[in-house]
Design a protein around this nucleic acid. Sequence first.
DNA 1: TTACTAAACAGTAACCAGTATAAACTAATT
DNA 2: AATTAGTTTATACTGGTTACTGTTTAGTAA
Lengths: 143, 143
Amino acid sequence: MKSAEDMVALFRQQGLKITPQRRAIFETLAEGAVHPSAEEVYRRVQEGLPDISRMTVYNTLRELVALGELVEVEDVSSSAMRYDTETGNHHHLFCLGCHALVDVDQSFEALELPQAAAAGYRIVRHQVTFYGYCPTCQKSNPR
Amino acid sequence: MKSAEDMVALFRQQGLKITPQRRAIFETLAEGAVHPSAEEVYRRVQEGLPDISRMTVYNTLRELVALGELVEVEDVSSSAMRYDTETGNHHHLFCLGCHALVDVDQSFEALELPQAAAAGYRIVRHQVTFYGYCPTCQKSNPR
DNA sequence: TTACTAAACAGTAACCAGTATAAACTAATT
DNA sequence: AATTAGTTTATACTGGTTACTGTTTAGTAA
Ligand SMILES: [Mn+2]
Ligand SMILES: [Mn+2]
Ligand SMILES: [Zn+2]
Ligand SMILES: [Zn+2]
C-alpha cells in the first residue's frame, strides 16, 4: 500500500480536501492490518481522533476504492466487507474457523479463461481463495 | 445438486423431521436458480406455501450448509449471502455491473498451494472468481 | 387411534453493516 | 478576512439476518 503522504497527494491532485480525519485514516491504513473491516479502521482511527464519525470512515474508504487505492474483499460468513490495501493481483487464504484472511504470494499462471468458458464476459481481474483451517484452529478443533 | 428426495432421506437419516416446509424448500432448491439468496428461495417457496416464515427458510438453508449440501458464496457489494447448490469444486464468473453469478466449468490444474505458501493451513477447497462485465452490461455501459 | 414430546414453525423484535439526509463546519481559494 | 464548495457529524433509516417466544406438528410408541 502507498504511504499516507502518497494518498494525501493523490487526494489533492483529485481536487479533494485534506482533513485531519482523512489524514488519520490514511495513516491507519498505511501502518495497519492487512484486511481490515470498516469498523476496524474506525476503531483504530478513533484512538487518535475520538470524535470522528463512522460515516467519515465509510466515505473515505469508498473514495479510496473508487480511486483504486483499496480493493473490496468479501468475507464469507462475517457479513462485513473488508478492505485490501494490497491492490496488486494476489490471492488469499481464508480460515474457516477464525476468519483470518492472509495473502498468498503465489502467482498462478494459466488462469486465463478460454473464450468459450467466459460466456462473453469481459474479465477485469480474478481472485483465488483457498479455504481451510489455520494452525491455531487445527489445534483447537482437530479433525 | 441432489434431488429433493435425497435431501429428505438425508434429513431423516440425521434424525431431523420432514415437514411440508422443508420439502418445499428442497424442491425449490432442486429445480431452482443456481445461486439464490435466502430471499429468493423464500419468494419461490412462498408461491406454493404462502404462510411459510422467512425464518424457516433461513434455518433450513443453514442446516443444509451444515450438512454440506449447500455452499455459501459471497457476493461483493450486494450484502446478501448466496447459496450454491453445486457443492463440487467449480469456479465463478461474477458481473460487476448486474451481479450475475455464473458457474465456470473449467478446472484449473496446478492450483495446489506449495507447502511453503500455505502458512500451515490445512486447505479444504479453493475457489477462483473472475470479475468482469457480462455481455448485457458491456452494451449498456461500454468502455 | 390417540397421546406424548421434542422438534420445528410463525411472528415479532432486535441486531448489524451500511446508506441517506441535512445541518454545521472548515479547507482551500480569493 | 470573506467566500464557498466540499466535508463532517448526528440521526434516521434500510436490508439482511438472528434471537426469542409461544404455538403447532412430525414421529413414536402405548
Ligand atoms: Mn490481500
Ligand atoms: Mn456455483
Ligand atoms: Zn483460524
Ligand atoms: Zn451484468
